[in-house]
């Protein structure tokens, strides 16, 4: 049962992602991206990474997508829909991407990844994740807080309007 669910989520994720980069209206593109991000959270759940799935929904869908919608609405122009959203080189870009995907196909089937099956158990779980964050990975964990501060200050510096 879980396998069918995974394949349904995976296929819909692919569909949402493709729709996101191909539709004409940028707002629709953002909506498809939000659905794709929700599907990714579903994938995380299927990999027994429940905490990560919840964080994905909260931060990505809840935070980043809100940011995107704000930015889209703040930079909208009348008559946007008539402007070409995709450049003339879309055929060339499509060939490049398809080529790289072909490379990936070769690599995946040449590797031992295709035969690996799920080991028994529940994965590392929330306990193990928390312990790792505060012991082995304590330095990057603290470092990220400086990163967030820097991004915040940067956004304010560039975004604020002089009174």
């Amino acid at each position: 049962m879980t396998e069918t669910v995974f394949y349904i989520i995976a296929v819909s994720l692919c569909v949402f992602a493709v729709l996101s980069v191909t539709v004409k209206d940028v707002f629709h593109s953002a909506v498809w991206l939000a659905l794709a991000l929700l599907s990714v959270a579903g994938i995380f759940l299927s990999l027994d990474a429940a905490f990560l799935g919840v964080i994905q929904v909260l931060v990505y869908v809840g935070g980043i997508m809100t940011l995107f919608i704000f930015a889209i609405k703040l930079t909208a122009r009348i008559g946007d829909r008539s402007i070409r959203q995709v450049s003339q080189q879309s055929v060339c870009g499509g060939i490049v991407s398809a080529g790289i995907f072909g490379v990936f196909l070769i690599i995946i089937y040449a590797n031992q990844w295709n035969d690996m099956m799920l080991p028994p158990g529940q994965g590392i779980g929330l306990n193990g994740l928390g312990k790792a964050l505060l012991t082995t990975y304590a330095l990057p964990f603290e470092f990220i807080s400086v990163l967030l501060l820097a991004a915040l200050v940067g956004a304010i510096v560039i975004g604020k309007v002089k009174q």
């Binding site: 990975y137 330095l139 990057p140 470092f143 990220i144 990163l147 820097a150 991004a151 940067g154 510096v157």
Partner: peptide
Amino acid sequence: MMLYLSVEMLSIVSYV
């Protein structure tokens, strides 16, 4: 992981 995080943080600060 540390390498990626520091490079990414440098990049973000550089964009600003």
